[in-house]
């Protein structure tokens, strides 16, 4: 087979080797490789912890009171965030599938949902959905907040799923259906597992953004970090001190989470 070596050869197009989804908002995710972001993360984190501790110990009145009161809102904030992320994942999955679907109807449906949600401020949506839900159902504030945030974030999550599905090389679907699998089977067993891996960092990012945006639910009847702070202000008029504490609590949580997301991402890369 001496002739073999003389043939011109094409390198196969294997598609993108590592696919990344651009992140539009949320905290900067500090990677060790990205020393600038990592260092500024460190500085901010240490500064905020030091400030928090100093305030509480040097000037316990009023800061310790404020801290104890507002920090009780942390579980509420987390509860809303975790459940709303789960809800938005489910909605986002269907929305993303709808967008890549071959059915014109599902395409349009998913597209309209995304356009609608992206075109209205989050705060307006939250209040609207809260009152709309209240008109027809008897539900608790917490559940209403979770549903409202899920619907809002579902659209952004849908975009992430769409991008993630499209980032899986086309050959994967072809190989699966060429083996006799249905499109649905190929989607479940071949495409979506790869999609999840691609979009995991983006989901982590959404989680952080959601945690911050969940402060918006304090306008409807939910006693999260911000709400507790505002209640405290209405009693004591210590607005600056209270908001400083609230901001620091959010900052510490967000910085911690962004580091966790970064570690997760690094670990996945090494796998």
């Amino acid at each position: 087979m001496a002739e073999i070596d003389k043939l011109p050869r094409k390198k196969a197009d294997r598609g993108p080797v590592t696919s990344r989804i651009d992140v539009t908002d949320g905290a900067l995710i500090p990677n060790r490789g990205n020393s600038l972001v990592f260092n500024s993360w460190r500085v901010t984190f240490i500064l905020s912890i030091v400030l928090l501790v100093l305030l509480i110990f040097i000037s316990p009145a009023p800061f310790r009171d404020i801290f104890y009161i507002t920090v009780k809102g942390v579980p509420v904030t987390f509860q809303v965030t975790v459940f709303a992320i789960l809800g938005s994942l489910v909605l986002g999955l269907f929305c993303g599938l709808g967008q890549v679907s071959r059915s014109r109807l599902l395409n349009t449906l998913a597209g309209v949902y995304v356009e609608l949600i992206r075109g209205i401020p989050l705060l307006v949506q939250l209040i609207f959905i809260y009152y709309a839900l209240g008109r027809f159902f008897q539900i608790e504030g917490l559940i209403a907040a979770i549903i409202a945030l899920s619907i809002c974030y579902g659209a952004y999550m849908g975009e992430i799923f769409r991008a993630g599905i499209q980032a899986v090389p086309k050959g994967q679907m072809e190989a699966a259906i060429a083996l006799g699998m249905s499109r649905g089977q190929a989607l479940r067993k071949v495409i979506l597992p790869q999609t999840m891996k691609i979009i995991l960092p983006a989901i982590g990012n959404e989680f952080i953004a959601m945690l911050k945006d969940s402060s918006l639910v304090s306008v409807i009847a939910l006693r999260d970090i911000l709400r507790r702070g505002r209640e405290y202000i209405s009693r004591t008029f210590l607005s600056l001190e209270t908001m400083l504490m609230v901001a620091l609590i959010y900052l510490v949580i967000t910085l911690l989470l962004s580091r966790i997301v970064a570690l997760m991402e690094e670990r996945m890369k090494n796998e």
Binding site: A12, R14, Q172, E174, A175, A176, Q194
Partner: peptide, 9 residues
């Protein structure tokens, strides 16, 4: 296929 298209996961 030319590009194998094995399932990487």
């Amino acid at each position: 296929f030319q590009s194998f298209n094995l399932f990487p996961h």
